[in-house]
Design a protein around this nucleic acid. Structure first.
Lengths: 101, 101
DNA sequence: ACAATATGTAGGAGAATTCCTACCTGTCAA
DNA sequence: TTGACAGGTAGGAATTCTCCTACATATTGT
């Protein structure tokens, strides 16, 4: 599953959002959800496989942290569309000003 | 299915990319894929339901066009992560310059 | 009116996703 | 060394996704 597929799940987007604040352990992450801990662990695996997060072991804990690169790629993918909607807004503004005059 | 879910499919991302150039009819879009035309039509429905594209009928043709708003929302969602990876890059640069000195 | 064109919908098969409980593994602390 | 803790893996049920062929609907040109 690629980056887009990984972010398609609301649960995984929430995980990613939690990791944006700071790295957290698997258990701490799981505590934020009503689903079972193993299920959260599976979601973490999806995020890992997509390269969105990495994991380091500290004793019996595993700290998950956000990886920057995939988000950079996402941003690049979005670039052309961003230009698209900015142009749309600019066009809209022009029309509104036209009406005012 | 929401915007993220809709963009999880490579086929739908390609559709969206085609529509970024200009609005196109369902048939013209389908011609770009090796899968059956009805399947492409179903992908278009997913994009429609997610609000990513809209459709206007011109006779027996239906022109699909990209909608700006969902991409704007995507951009806003990405905002905090964009800051995240920019900070990472800045940090990396700082470390490299440190090494040089 | 009729055949051809453009496109969506129905129904279904097969694959993938998502969640669960049970279980296994490695680490820490007494 | 042994029990408790942190966390991943296995196997499976229910659901959703993706693709197909067949069919239905609307429009156009003759």
């Amino acid at each position: 599953m690629d980056v887009f597929g990984a972010l398609a799940s609301p649960v995984r987007r929430e995980l990613v959002q939690l990791l944006l604040e700071r790295p957290r352990s698997a258990g701490e992450l799981a505590a934020n959800f009503s689903m079972s801990r193993p299920s959260v662990s599976e979601h973490l695996k999806v995020l890992r496989d997509a390269g969105l997060v990495s994991e380091r072991r500290y004793g019996r804990r595993r700290l998950y942290r956000l990886e920057a690169e995939p988000f950079r790629e996402l941003s690049q993918w979005l670039g052309p569309y961003e230009r698209f909607w900015r142009d749309k807004l600019a066009g809209l503004r022009a029309v509104l000003e036209e009406d005012e005059s």
